[in-house]
Simulated assay, not measured.
Amino acid sequence: MTVEQILRAQAAAANRGIDALLISPGADLRYLTGYDALPLERLTCLVIPVGAEPFLVVPELEEPAARAGIALAPDVELVVWKETADPFDVICRRLPSGLARIAVDDHMWADRVLTFARLLADVRLIAAGPVMTELRMRKTSREVDALRAAGAAIDSVHRQMGLWLRAGRTEREVARDVADAIASAGHTRADFVIIGSGPNSASPHHEASDRVISAGEPIVVDISGTMPDGYRSDCTRTYSIGEPPADHAAYFAVLHAAQTAQVNAVRPGITAGDLDAVGCDIISAAGYGPNFVHRTGHGIGLDVHEPPYIMAGSDLVIEPGMAFSIEPGIYLPGRHGARIEDIVICTTTGGLPVNAVTHDLQIL
């Protein structure tokens, strides 16, 4: 699959008038080669000239890991540099002559971009983001299967939440148990564990604290992990230790209706802005518009947050293969909040949620 992806990258670059791509460690490199390289001080860089063979420059001590990592990309030549060599010079000498525009990945360290700019003074350096977004935003059937497996794994953790969410425990204690469960469910690691209880549930990106959970409190649980193949899970559900406050139950019903409507509205041809508006309109009509403070969702794949972004004003047209979260929330600062999140994949006929755990307010 990675051979095909490199060919697609060359074609996408050529269509944008780009002569070569320089890709450093990160999700783009893993997408193109299968190699999950560590971002170290020694340069690792995939070079993809348009119309020439790609090559991967790696430090000698990383050679074994690189050879294993690019097993699915046999057409990528491995160029190993020794400790005293200059890897930037190695790359510049091997680049075809006459290049005018080279794109570097969006996350390449600034000192490396500046070094390439100095050594390639006659070449215009630009961002490779548009090229890589064009490729990664539309998932292949293999990637869809990977996201569905990740969704099933994180669902299994949510189904066990009653084992850990109890009055008298701190958010941090619960978070440690949940992180262990994410790994036990088949992920290689937990990416984040948000446990927001009581007033902390009104903070969308709250980190677990030493706050003690009490009875009658809503709790927002937003969890994510990375699977062995690099694809991510991300799912949010709202819980309550005993019956929640009456006003919380009232606006949770509004949130549930909004999230359901948005999932049902996913289809090819709808814009990201219009999809965002489906939920916003329901929440606003119920009087909670100012309490929905973030976009509806984000794309997901080898990064937990990547294009497309489902947000107001976006004219991006949703297409089959795009995968993203649908996660409206309602937050009453200082009191409590709620969020429901599914990962949804756009198919030719509509939206395919990868999360199946109940969306209802779960009273423990």
Rank of each mutant, 00 (worst) to 15 (best):
Y288E: 02
A323K: 07
S240I: 00
D303W: 14
Q259L: 11
V304T: 13
H298V: 15
I326G: 05
C235S: 10
E319H: 02
Y309R: 13
I310Q: 03
L302C: 01
I241D: 01
E319L: 11
D247W: 07
D247Q: 03
V266G: 04
G301L: 10
E327V: 01
G289D: 10
H305N: 14
T236L: 04
V293A: 02
M311R: 12
V293D: 12
E243Y: 09
H256P: 13
G242Q: 00
H256C: 15
R295L: 14
S325L: 12
I283W: 14
A249V: 06
A285V: 02
A277K: 06
I300F: 00
A257W: 04
A272Y: 08
A249N: 01
G273M: 10
V254S: 01
M311P: 07
I282S: 04
P308T: 08
E306V: 02
L316F: 12
R295M: 15
A286E: 14
I310N: 02
E327R: 13
A323Q: 10
Y309N: 03
M322G: 06
L302E: 03
S284G: 15
Q259Y: 09
L302D: 08
P290K: 02
A261Q: 01
M322L: 05
Q259R: 06
P245F: 00
L275G: 01
T296H: 06
A323Y: 05
G289T: 06
P320Y: 03
R237C: 08
G313L: 11
L316R: 07
S233L: 03
M311H: 14
M311I: 08
D276Y: 03
I282D: 06
C280P: 15
T238K: 04
L316H: 10
S233T: 01
V254K: 04
S314C: 04
P320Q: 07
H256V: 03
G289P: 14
A246L: 12
L302M: 11
S240F: 00
A312K: 14
R267Y: 09
C235F: 04
D247P: 01
V266K: 04
D276C: 11
D281H: 14
R295A: 15
A285Q: 15
A323F: 07
L255Q: 01
S284W: 15
I270P: 08
D247K: 05
G321M: 09
Y288T: 04
V278A: 09
P245Q: 04
G289S: 13
Q259H: 02
P290G: 01
G299C: 01
Y288S: 03
D303C: 14
G279C: 13
A312N: 13
A272C: 08
G297L: 05
I241R: 11
V293I: 15
I282H: 03
A272L: 14
H305P: 03
D315M: 12
T236H: 03
P307W: 07
E327Q: 13
H298T: 15
C280N: 14
V293G: 01
M311E: 15
P290A: 03
I283L: 10
N291L: 04
I270C: 10
I283K: 06
G242F: 00
L255H: 00
L275C: 00
V304Q: 13
I270G: 10
